[in-house]
Simulated assay, not measured.
Amino acid sequence: MSIYDFEVSDIRGAKSDLTAYKGRVMLIVNTATKCGFAPQFKGLQKLYERYADKGLAVLGFPSNQFANQEPGDNAEIQQICELNHGVSFPLFAKIDVNGPGAHPLFTYLKNEAPGFLGTRRIKWNFTKFLVDREGRVVKRFAPAVTPEKIENAIQKLL
């Protein structure tokens, strides 16, 4: 199965797959607006603004699986991201990233790029997955790794 085969719903509920991002570098992130890492939204937005025209897509997937840090519905999440963080990159419907209800996209990402010591589980919000133009998952970045610290890795793929 290819990363482009996974069905996703955008923040407004429209269903599609990831083929719209074929040929682009993707940075896929599980997000939460009430997380201590939420200031990373600004860094993600800067990367998006700086490199979108060169082929970068930043994709945000809200999740409420970590300390109830994304309790709102999709409309609230979108509003907070736009108003408080200036987000204009694509946001998707709130999902689970771990457990039996984990979205298949995140199950795939975790299998393709395991975490520290081979762990498959996502440990917290703002885990980032970098995907190359051919749809290969290149690397997983821990939540504490800021968008600024992964800019070089993105540049190499662009």
Score class of each variant (00 low, 15 high):
residue 33 T to V: 00
residue 33 T to M: 00
residue 33 T to H: 01
residue 33 T to K: 02
residue 34 K to P: 14
residue 35 C to M: 03
residue 36 G to E: 06
residue 36 G to D: 11
residue 37 F to R: 06
residue 37 F to M: 15
residue 37 F to I: 14
residue 37 F to W: 14
residue 38 A to S: 06
residue 38 A to I: 01
residue 38 A to L: 07
residue 39 P to L: 15
residue 39 P to V: 14
residue 40 Q to V: 13
residue 40 Q to D: 13
residue 40 Q to P: 15
residue 41 F to W: 14
residue 41 F to P: 03
residue 42 K to R: 10
residue 42 K to Q: 06
residue 42 K to L: 08
residue 43 G to R: 01
residue 43 G to T: 08
residue 43 G to V: 02
residue 44 L to T: 07
residue 44 L to M: 07
residue 45 Q to F: 10
residue 45 Q to L: 10
residue 45 Q to H: 09
residue 45 Q to S: 04
residue 46 K to S: 12
residue 46 K to V: 11
residue 46 K to W: 08
residue 47 L to D: 12
residue 47 L to R: 02
residue 47 L to W: 05
residue 48 Y to N: 04
residue 48 Y to S: 12
residue 48 Y to W: 00
residue 49 E to K: 09
residue 49 E to L: 11
residue 49 E to H: 05
residue 49 E to I: 15
residue 49 E to W: 11
residue 50 R to H: 13
residue 50 R to C: 11
residue 50 R to Q: 15
residue 51 Y to V: 06
residue 51 Y to I: 11
residue 51 Y to T: 06
residue 52 A to S: 11
residue 52 A to D: 06
residue 52 A to L: 01
residue 52 A to F: 00
residue 52 A to Y: 03
residue 53 D to G: 07
residue 53 D to P: 09
residue 53 D to H: 06
residue 54 K to F: 10
residue 54 K to E: 15
residue 55 G to P: 04
residue 55 G to I: 06
residue 56 L to D: 02
residue 56 L to G: 05
residue 57 A to G: 08
residue 57 A to V: 08
residue 57 A to R: 01
residue 57 A to D: 09
residue 57 A to T: 12
residue 58 V to C: 12
residue 58 V to N: 12
residue 59 L to V: 02
residue 59 L to C: 04
residue 60 G to V: 11
residue 61 F to W: 05
residue 62 P to L: 04
residue 63 S to I: 00
residue 63 S to K: 06
residue 63 S to W: 01
residue 63 S to D: 02
residue 64 N to F: 04
residue 64 N to T: 04
residue 64 N to L: 06
residue 64 N to W: 03
residue 65 Q to H: 09
residue 65 Q to Y: 14
residue 65 Q to K: 02
residue 66 F to T: 00
residue 67 A to W: 11
residue 67 A to Q: 11
residue 68 N to R: 09
residue 68 N to M: 08
residue 68 N to E: 09
residue 69 Q to E: 13
residue 69 Q to F: 14
residue 70 E to D: 05
residue 70 E to L: 00
residue 70 E to M: 01
residue 70 E to Q: 01
residue 71 P to L: 09
residue 72 G to D: 04
residue 72 G to E: 03
residue 73 D to F: 08
residue 73 D to E: 14
residue 73 D to T: 04
residue 74 N to Q: 12
residue 74 N to W: 01
residue 75 A to L: 05
residue 75 A to G: 07
residue 75 A to C: 06
residue 77 I to E: 00
residue 77 I to V: 15
residue 77 I to H: 05
residue 78 Q to H: 13
residue 78 Q to P: 13
residue 78 Q to T: 06
residue 79 Q to D: 13
residue 79 Q to V: 12
residue 80 I to G: 10
residue 80 I to D: 11
residue 81 C to G: 11
residue 85 H to W: 03
residue 85 H to V: 06
residue 86 G to F: 01
residue 86 G to E: 10
residue 86 G to A: 07
residue 86 G to P: 15
residue 87 V to K: 01
residue 88 S to R: 09
residue 89 F to P: 08
residue 89 F to G: 13
residue 90 P to M: 14
residue 90 P to S: 14
residue 90 P to W: 13
residue 90 P to K: 15
residue 90 P to H: 13
